[in-house]
């Protein structure tokens, strides 16, 4: 099933580690700024806009 993961910057190393231990090294994912829980609507919208383009690329398998 096509999927696209989104991580905040702070969790990039955790995502890379989990991908590695699950046998999917270099698994691509989108990255947004951290944190999101205290971000206001405008900041969230900006993150979403950035993530949307990355997710579209991931879903279209542009990273292979």
């Amino acid at each position: 099933m096509p999927s696209a993961g989104i991580m905040t910057e702070t969790f990039v190393s955790a995502a890379e580690l989990m991908a590695r231990v699950l046998g999917a090294e270099d698994y691509p994912f989108a990255v947004i700024e951290h944190p999101i829980s205290s971000a206001d609507q405008a900041a969230l919208a900006a993150r979403a806009e950035r993530a949307a383009a990355d997710c579209a690329r991931l879903l279209l398998n542009a990273d292979g």
Partner: peptide, 10 residues
């Protein structure tokens, strides 16, 4: 399980 600070342990 690699539950080290900064690895799996966040």
């Amino acid at each position: 399980m690699d539950v080290r600070p900064g690895a799996i342990d966040r």
